[in-house]
Design a protein around this nucleic acid. Sequence first.
RNA 1: GGCUCUGUAGCUUAAUGGAUAGAGCAUCUGACUACGGAUCAGAAGGUUGGAGGUUCGAGUCCUCCCAGAGUCACCA
Length: 567
Amino acid sequence: MAKGKTRVETQNFASLRPSKIISLPLQTHTPRMNIISLLQEKVAAGVLALYGESPAINQIAINKTRKEFEGDFTVVTFPFTRVAGKKPEEVGAELGQYLQKEFQYVAGFNVVKGFLNLVISDNFWLDFLVKDALALNYGQQPSNGRKVMVEYSSPNTNKPLHLGHIRNILLGWSTSRILETAGYEVKRVQIVNDRGIAICKSMLGWQRFANDSTPASTGTKGDHFVGQFYVAFERAFQEEYRDWQQTAHGQSVFNDRQDKSQDEAAFFKAYKDAYFNVYSPLGADARDMLRRWEAGDTDTIALWRKLNQWVYDGFDETYRRLGVRFDKIYYESDTYLLGKDLIQQGLEKGVFYRRDDGSVWIDLTDAKLDHKVVLRSDGTSVYITQDIGTARLRYDDFGVEKMVYVVGDEQNYHFQVLFEIMKRLGEPYAQGLHHLSYGMVDLPTGRMKSREGTVVDADDLVDEVIGEAREGSKERDATAELSTEERENIIRQIGLAALKYFIIKVHPQKRMIFDPKESVDLQGQTGPYIQNAYVRIQSVLRKAQEEGYALTGNDVKGYALHTDEKT
RNA sequence: GGCUCUGUAGCUUAAUGGAUAGAGCAUCUGACUACGGAUCAGAAGGUUGGAGGUUCGAGUCCUCCCAGAGUCACCA
């Protein structure tokens, strides 16, 4: 049986923070960020004025002052001791005096060893609060005029989305939001694996076992409906294979081919794919279906369209519930032949080489990678050929200079190779390609295995967290006065916040355990906890307004801040 | 075996090469007839897998080792 792995077929996943995907400019327009870069500039100027040499701005470390010391921001003065030829303490004192004199917001300072603690004037914080922190789009950077693409989700059309897709989708979605906030124009895309042998299996399964039922006639969500027939096909195949093993033919194959170290069960387990491709009538039917599809057979294409549409309707529903969307969906049925022209051009440029059997390769050994086939000896594409072509297509479509691929860490090597090839082909966006790799999601009981039926379905999971939120709200009466519709909406928001925060708070690169119970815990570092804090703050503000307080510059001027109010 | 990733309190985790490794859960002490209690304050809990090295300074960088995972297809 063909494994047919695609972008997120299994739940394997490792990764880089968005801050590494893009090099965020330190210069930003909110005072909070701005004061750090201003401080850096002033420190650089100070070092130059005092010691005659200017350090690189980005090497000036400015941190928040630890709470046991007095001050708001701390400059690390160790790096300047060399140019100054003085002890860290002396440098700190001289630099502190300079800053206090030259920079209006520095109200005072103290020096502890190599750390210069700066006290920032209350006026700065008050201005910051009124003008920026309370603004609607706090943190939003002005457009930087650059475009970036984020690819995420990218499922197969033979099964519903599962927990692995949820991590992928939430990482992709939050990455795209972060990039937008950083000033990029973001294009959200996915590549759907809508073709191939696996899709033919669900088509055959539907033909054989569905009796012309539809999602509508059975009241089943489309992706789940089609998934049932993929499973039905697999079950029928298993049965066929089991029966065949007992036939004279099956036994003779076993006797001819068995390795002495294998018992019969182990042999047949390993032989399954070969059986599917060589002897299986169901396998032959599936391959025949694939041939008809590739030949453009009208009935086959119509069937394929019908089933895929059901699946897309189901996926749309799941995406809607999760609150994510896409600007463009790429389909492998459109892209699986792409890339051959780039291979041809690469051959002419000498990037690739042709072997005697006609296959085309690239030698990446000098990049600590291996030789990689990019075109089979029969001239057909492999997985990476398609990715080469699709990258170019996306560049042509959107003119993006960066592309982020949110794909599990099992494909780390694939993307290393892909990006290296794109560089050697001289593609203009090649330096901007990034694999946002993430680790597998395990369950408390171990890893998800489709064969053992332990795969957590995405829709079931969303239902579960919302259900937990509903249970929680029953014990309280805060929502009692609301209409059912309003209450359900709040419950849905709480449940999803729980799920999203639980997934997003873990570093992508780390494999994580998803505990459904813990994820919907409302205490501690959770989505609902943050929501609650927000709601209470809003309540304070609302009541303040009702009593006639308005948060304007005039009201707060001259107010002496408590230390805790400046963090 | 080669390459890549991961290893931090009992558990889940954070930390652009900067000060005494920061949180949450659980545990233990306390507060409150509730500014939306899904609350708040506090305590205890660590040889950052191990050993070397670079550095004024290492959880972070380098080398080796240990443990786990992924990957090494004319599959996707």
